[in-house]
Amino acid sequence: MLAANVDETLEIDREALFQLALRLGDTSLILGHRLSEWAGHAPILDEDIALSNLGLDLIGQARSFLTYAGEVEGRGRDEDQLAYMRNAPEYRNLLMVELPRGDFAFTMVRQFLFSAFQLPFYQQMMQSRDKTLAAIAAKAEKEMAYHLRHSSQWVVRLGDGTKESHERTQNALNSLWTYTGEMFETDASLKALIEAGIYCDPASIRETWNKSVDDVLQQATLTRPETGWMQSGALTGRHSEHLSHLLAEMQSVQRAYPGLKW
Protein backbone atom coordinates (compact mmCIF):
# COMPACT_ATOMS: atom_id res chain seq x y z
CA MET A 1 0.00 0.00 0.00
CA LEU A 2 2.35 2.69 -1.19
CA ALA A 3 1.52 6.20 -2.27
CA ALA A 4 2.93 6.95 -5.68
CA ASN A 5 5.34 9.65 -4.66
CA VAL A 6 6.78 7.97 -1.61
CA ASP A 7 10.16 6.34 -1.76
CA GLU A 8 9.26 2.76 -2.63
CA THR A 9 11.56 1.21 -0.10
CA LEU A 10 9.24 2.50 2.63
CA GLU A 11 6.38 0.58 4.10
CA ILE A 12 3.82 3.30 4.62
CA ASP A 13 0.33 2.97 5.90
CA ARG A 14 -1.76 4.73 3.27
CA GLU A 15 -4.43 5.63 5.81
CA ALA A 16 -1.85 7.33 8.04
CA LEU A 17 -0.56 9.37 5.11
CA PHE A 18 -4.11 10.26 4.12
CA GLN A 19 -4.83 11.48 7.66
CA LEU A 20 -1.64 13.54 7.66
CA ALA A 21 -2.51 15.22 4.35
CA LEU A 22 -5.97 15.98 5.75
CA ARG A 23 -4.48 17.41 8.94
CA LEU A 24 -2.29 19.78 6.93
CA GLY A 25 -4.94 20.61 4.34
CA ASP A 26 -7.80 21.11 6.77
CA THR A 27 -5.75 23.31 9.05
CA SER A 28 -4.77 25.58 6.14
CA LEU A 29 -8.29 25.64 4.76
CA ILE A 30 -10.04 26.53 7.99
CA LEU A 31 -7.57 29.25 8.89
CA GLY A 32 -7.77 30.63 5.34
CA HIS A 33 -11.55 30.64 5.65
CA ARG A 34 -11.40 32.54 8.94
CA LEU A 35 -9.08 35.12 7.39
CA SER A 36 -11.38 35.55 4.40
CA GLU A 37 -14.11 36.68 6.80
CA TRP A 38 -12.15 39.91 7.32
CA ALA A 39 -12.29 41.02 3.68
CA GLY A 40 -14.14 44.33 3.65
CA HIS A 41 -14.28 44.52 7.45
CA ALA A 42 -10.66 44.99 8.54
CA PRO A 43 -9.60 47.91 10.75
CA ILE A 44 -7.59 49.52 7.96
CA LEU A 45 -7.74 49.07 4.21
CA ASP A 46 -4.16 47.79 4.10
CA GLU A 47 -5.25 44.91 6.33
CA ASP A 48 -8.28 44.09 4.16
CA ILE A 49 -5.64 43.44 1.52
CA ALA A 50 -3.03 41.77 3.73
CA LEU A 51 -5.45 39.41 5.49
CA SER A 52 -6.94 38.38 2.14
CA ASN A 53 -3.43 37.73 0.95
CA LEU A 54 -2.65 35.47 3.92
CA GLY A 55 -5.98 33.72 3.42
CA LEU A 56 -5.23 33.12 -0.24
CA ASP A 57 -1.87 31.54 0.56
CA LEU A 58 -3.52 29.19 3.04
CA ILE A 59 -6.37 28.24 0.72
CA GLY A 60 -3.77 27.53 -1.97
CA GLN A 61 -1.86 25.26 0.41
CA ALA A 62 -5.09 23.56 1.39
CA ARG A 63 -5.90 22.79 -2.24
CA SER A 64 -2.52 21.11 -2.74
CA PHE A 65 -2.76 19.05 0.43
CA LEU A 66 -6.35 18.00 -0.13
CA THR A 67 -5.74 17.07 -3.74
CA TYR A 68 -2.88 14.91 -2.54
CA ALA A 69 -5.03 13.45 0.25
CA GLY A 70 -7.53 12.39 -2.39
CA GLU A 71 -4.80 10.74 -4.45
CA VAL A 72 -3.41 8.90 -1.45
CA GLU A 73 -6.85 7.74 -0.41
CA GLY A 74 -7.44 6.39 -3.90
CA ARG A 75 -11.22 6.55 -3.79
CA GLY A 76 -11.50 9.23 -6.45
CA ARG A 77 -12.27 12.12 -4.11
CA ASP A 78 -10.92 15.48 -5.23
CA GLU A 79 -10.15 18.60 -3.19
CA ASP A 80 -13.75 19.79 -3.35
CA GLN A 81 -15.32 16.51 -2.34
CA LEU A 82 -12.99 16.43 0.63
CA ALA A 83 -13.58 20.07 1.58
CA TYR A 84 -17.31 20.25 0.97
CA MET A 85 -18.68 16.80 1.66
CA ARG A 86 -17.07 15.84 4.96
CA ASN A 87 -18.67 16.55 8.32
CA ALA A 88 -16.95 18.15 11.28
CA PRO A 89 -15.83 14.89 12.98
CA GLU A 90 -14.02 13.92 9.76
CA TYR A 91 -12.07 17.17 9.73
CA ARG A 92 -8.51 16.97 11.06
CA ASN A 93 -7.63 20.63 11.51
CA LEU A 94 -6.07 22.05 14.65
CA LEU A 95 -8.71 23.41 17.01
CA MET A 96 -6.92 26.76 17.19
CA VAL A 97 -7.74 27.67 13.59
CA GLU A 98 -11.47 27.02 13.80
CA LEU A 99 -12.07 29.47 16.67
CA PRO A 100 -14.05 32.54 15.52
CA ARG A 101 -11.89 35.35 14.19
CA GLY A 102 -12.48 37.48 17.29
CA ASP A 103 -11.03 40.99 17.27
CA PHE A 104 -7.97 42.03 15.30
CA ALA A 105 -5.70 41.15 18.24
CA PHE A 106 -7.09 37.62 18.41
CA THR A 107 -6.66 37.15 14.67
CA MET A 108 -3.08 38.41 14.71
CA VAL A 109 -1.96 36.51 17.81
CA ARG A 110 -3.37 33.30 16.36
CA GLN A 111 -1.65 33.98 13.05
CA PHE A 112 1.59 34.62 14.88
CA LEU A 113 1.50 31.52 17.12
CA PHE A 114 0.60 29.38 14.12
CA SER A 115 3.12 30.87 11.67
CA ALA A 116 5.92 30.65 14.23
CA PHE A 117 5.33 26.89 14.16
CA GLN A 118 4.47 26.52 10.50
CA LEU A 119 7.59 28.21 9.12
CA PRO A 120 10.17 25.91 10.75
CA PHE A 121 7.79 23.02 10.23
CA TYR A 122 7.67 23.52 6.47
CA GLN A 123 11.40 24.12 6.40
CA GLN A 124 11.85 20.63 7.81
CA MET A 125 9.12 19.13 5.68
CA MET A 126 11.07 20.19 2.59
CA GLN A 127 13.28 17.22 3.48
CA SER A 128 10.36 14.80 3.66
CA ARG A 129 10.82 11.53 1.81
CA ASP A 130 7.35 12.08 0.43
CA LYS A 131 8.14 14.14 -2.65
CA THR A 132 4.68 15.73 -2.92
CA LEU A 133 4.64 16.89 0.69
CA ALA A 134 8.20 18.18 0.29
CA ALA A 135 7.22 20.16 -2.82
CA ILE A 136 4.16 21.71 -1.16
CA ALA A 137 6.29 22.58 1.87
CA ALA A 138 8.89 24.28 -0.33
CA LYS A 139 6.24 26.62 -1.72
CA ALA A 140 4.47 27.14 1.58
CA GLU A 141 7.69 27.92 3.44
CA LYS A 142 8.16 31.17 1.52
CA GLU A 143 4.58 32.17 2.27
CA MET A 144 4.86 31.39 5.96
CA ALA A 145 7.97 33.55 6.27
CA TYR A 146 5.81 36.49 5.21
CA HIS A 147 2.94 35.44 7.50
CA LEU A 148 5.29 35.26 10.45
CA ARG A 149 6.83 38.64 9.70
CA HIS A 150 3.49 40.35 9.19
CA SER A 151 1.84 38.87 12.28
CA SER A 152 4.92 39.41 14.49
CA GLN A 153 5.00 43.08 13.57
CA TRP A 154 1.35 43.46 14.47
CA VAL A 155 1.70 41.60 17.77
CA VAL A 156 4.52 43.98 18.69
CA ARG A 157 2.56 47.07 17.61
CA LEU A 158 -0.54 45.99 19.48
CA GLY A 159 1.24 44.76 22.60
CA ASP A 160 3.43 47.84 22.80
CA GLY A 161 0.71 50.25 21.63
CA THR A 162 -1.96 51.63 23.95
CA LYS A 163 -3.32 50.28 27.23
CA GLU A 164 -6.39 49.00 25.41
CA SER A 165 -4.44 47.28 22.64
CA HIS A 166 -2.07 45.75 25.18
CA GLU A 167 -4.97 44.30 27.17
CA ARG A 168 -6.73 42.97 24.10
CA THR A 169 -3.55 41.33 22.87
CA GLN A 170 -2.67 39.81 26.23
CA ASN A 171 -6.23 38.47 26.53
CA ALA A 172 -6.00 36.95 23.07
CA LEU A 173 -2.71 35.31 23.98
CA ASN A 174 -4.15 33.95 27.23
CA SER A 175 -7.16 32.52 25.37
CA LEU A 176 -5.14 30.95 22.60
CA TRP A 177 -2.33 29.47 24.67
CA THR A 178 -4.23 26.34 25.60
CA TYR A 179 -4.56 25.53 21.89
CA THR A 180 -0.83 25.70 21.12
CA GLY A 181 0.00 22.23 22.47
CA GLU A 182 -1.82 20.56 19.63
CA MET A 183 0.71 21.70 17.04
CA PHE A 184 3.31 19.51 18.76
CA GLU A 185 1.05 16.50 19.27
CA THR A 186 1.69 13.13 17.68
CA ASP A 187 -0.03 9.75 17.81
CA ALA A 188 1.04 6.28 16.76
CA SER A 189 0.33 6.96 13.07
CA LEU A 190 2.25 10.21 13.03
CA LYS A 191 5.11 8.57 14.93
CA ALA A 192 5.31 5.91 12.25
CA LEU A 193 5.45 8.63 9.61
CA ILE A 194 8.20 10.40 11.53
CA GLU A 195 10.12 7.11 11.69
CA ALA A 196 9.72 6.76 7.95
CA GLY A 197 11.03 10.28 7.28
CA ILE A 198 7.69 11.46 5.91
CA TYR A 199 6.61 13.71 8.75
CA CYS A 200 8.97 15.89 10.73
CA ASP A 201 9.12 15.41 14.47
CA PRO A 202 7.30 18.43 15.91
CA ALA A 203 9.31 18.11 19.11
CA SER A 204 12.34 19.23 17.12
CA ILE A 205 10.57 22.52 16.37
CA ARG A 206 9.78 23.31 19.97
CA GLU A 207 12.97 25.24 20.62
CA THR A 208 12.69 27.43 17.49
CA TRP A 209 9.04 28.11 18.25
CA ASN A 210 9.79 29.01 21.87
CA LYS A 211 12.46 31.42 20.77
CA SER A 212 10.27 33.16 18.16
CA VAL A 213 7.45 33.46 20.65
CA ASP A 214 9.65 34.75 23.46
CA ASP A 215 11.38 37.29 21.21
CA VAL A 216 8.16 38.75 19.93
CA LEU A 217 6.38 38.73 23.29
CA GLN A 218 9.33 40.51 24.84
CA GLN A 219 9.25 43.25 22.18
CA ALA A 220 5.48 43.42 22.54
CA THR A 221 5.76 43.73 26.36
CA LEU A 222 3.41 40.76 26.68
CA THR A 223 3.60 38.02 29.27
CA ARG A 224 3.95 34.44 28.16
CA PRO A 225 1.09 32.49 29.76
CA GLU A 226 1.83 29.60 32.11
CA THR A 227 1.71 26.34 30.20
CA GLY A 228 -1.01 24.21 31.73
CA TRP A 229 -3.65 21.91 30.31
CA MET A 230 -3.68 21.83 26.53
CA GLN A 231 -6.79 21.38 24.40
CA SER A 232 -6.70 18.52 21.97
CA GLY A 233 -8.97 16.98 19.34
CA ALA A 234 -7.53 17.39 15.83
CA LEU A 235 -6.16 13.87 15.66
CA THR A 236 -9.46 12.31 16.58
CA GLY A 237 -11.87 14.83 14.99
CA ARG A 238 -13.26 16.03 18.30
CA HIS A 239 -13.72 19.72 17.59
CA SER A 240 -14.96 22.87 19.30
CA GLU A 241 -18.56 24.04 18.87
CA HIS A 242 -17.46 26.40 16.12
CA LEU A 243 -16.39 24.06 13.33
CA SER A 244 -19.79 22.69 12.42
CA HIS A 245 -21.16 26.23 12.06
CA LEU A 246 -18.26 27.16 9.84
CA LEU A 247 -18.77 24.08 7.69
CA ALA A 248 -22.52 24.57 7.48
CA GLU A 249 -21.85 27.94 5.90
CA MET A 250 -18.89 26.93 3.76
CA GLN A 251 -20.59 23.84 2.38
CA SER A 252 -24.08 25.33 1.97
CA VAL A 253 -24.12 25.63 -1.85
CA GLN A 254 -22.55 22.22 -2.44
CA ARG A 255 -24.91 20.58 0.03
CA ALA A 256 -27.99 22.31 -1.41
CA TYR A 257 -27.14 21.21 -4.96
CA PRO A 258 -25.08 18.05 -4.57
CA GLY A 259 -23.05 16.55 -7.38
CA LEU A 260 -22.96 19.57 -9.69
CA LYS A 261 -20.07 21.36 -11.35
CA TRP A 262 -19.45 24.99 -10.41
Partner: peptide, 19 residues
Protein backbone atom coordinates in the same frame (compact mmCIF):
# COMPACT_ATOMS: atom_id res chain seq x y z
CA UNK B 1 -20.07 34.94 -0.72
CA UNK B 2 -16.45 34.52 0.39
CA UNK B 3 -17.42 31.96 2.96
CA UNK B 4 -19.85 30.11 0.66
CA UNK B 5 -18.07 29.86 -2.69
CA UNK B 6 -18.95 26.38 -3.98
CA UNK B 7 -15.44 25.14 -4.80
CA UNK B 8 -11.99 25.86 -3.44
CA UNK B 9 -10.93 27.29 -6.79
CA UNK B 10 -13.90 29.67 -6.78
CA UNK B 11 -13.17 30.55 -3.17
CA UNK B 12 -9.59 31.48 -4.03
CA UNK B 13 -10.47 33.51 -7.13
CA UNK B 14 -13.23 35.38 -5.33
CA UNK B 15 -10.94 36.26 -2.44
CA UNK B 16 -8.26 37.35 -4.92
CA UNK B 17 -10.79 39.54 -6.71
CA UNK B 18 -11.86 41.19 -3.48
CA UNK B 19 -8.22 41.71 -2.62
Amino acid sequence: WNTRAPTLRRKATLLAKIQ
